Computed example of a mutant assay.
Amino acid sequence: MRTLGAAEIEHPGGTLLEHLQRVNRLLKAWGARSELQLAGLCHAFYGTDGFATSLLPLESRGEVVEIIGAGAEELVYFYASCDRKTSYRTLAGEGGTFRDRFTGHSFSPGPHQRRDFAELTAANELDLAAIDPAFRTAWGDGLLGLLTRLRPLLSDEAWEHTRKVLT
């Protein structure tokens, strides 16, 4: 991460590297499996719909697989590829549509993939809300609405953290 410049990129609460480390620690505290924890640490590799800065181009996916494994890289790509405007509205429900912002392809992810996405989303956004009062003021109500819709997909630990940070 340091060699990719994450320690020099400004991000709410410090640097992007600090944010990635906090997301990783949150997922670990919530009891997430190791692949999801690792995806939390690496979730900004390809940028996101909410944070366009990327550490690596999509063409580096094969190299990322070699470093963090196929399962964790798949989660990183899935998270980064989310077209939030389209996907957030329906993702909580069975058959909800997910739109890949890189390819434009839409599909209905399975329950396991939706749960991982929800948990990573919660960890990412709750870190920002906890560390940055301005972020919480500007986005807290909308974030609480999103995570409430995603509640069926969240672990009890993630939901308790949501309530602690946003209510």
Rank of each mutant, 00 (worst) to 15 (best):
E66L: 10
L146G: 02
Q113N: 02
L26M: 12
G5N: 06
A138M: 13
L20P: 03
G145D: 14
F135E: 08
C42S: 12
L153D: 12
G93H: 07
R151V: 02
V65H: 05
T3F: 08
A7Q: 15
L153V: 09
F45P: 04
V65D: 11
E160D: 12
E94Q: 07
G69V: 06
R149H: 14
L120M: 13
D49Y: 02
G96F: 01
L4N: 06
E63F: 04
T3P: 03
S54W: 14
A158P: 04
A7E: 12
R61E: 10
A39K: 09
L36V: 08
K85Y: 08
L144I: 04
P111D: 07
R84W: 02
D141T: 13
A134H: 13
R101N: 10
L55W: 08
E119R: 14
F102D: 08
K164D: 09
L128H: 03
L55M: 09
L166D: 07
V64H: 04
P111F: 06
T162C: 14
V64R: 03
A7P: 03
A72Q: 03
P57W: 12
L128M: 13
D116Q: 06
W30S: 06
W30C: 03
I67L: 10
L38C: 13
G69I: 08
L4I: 06
A122E: 10
A80Q: 00
R89E: 15
P133A: 13
L128D: 05
T90I: 04
S106W: 07
A72H: 07
S87L: 01
G104F: 09
D83R: 01
T90G: 15
G69F: 06
L154S: 07
E18K: 10
T90H: 11
L27S: 07
R84L: 00
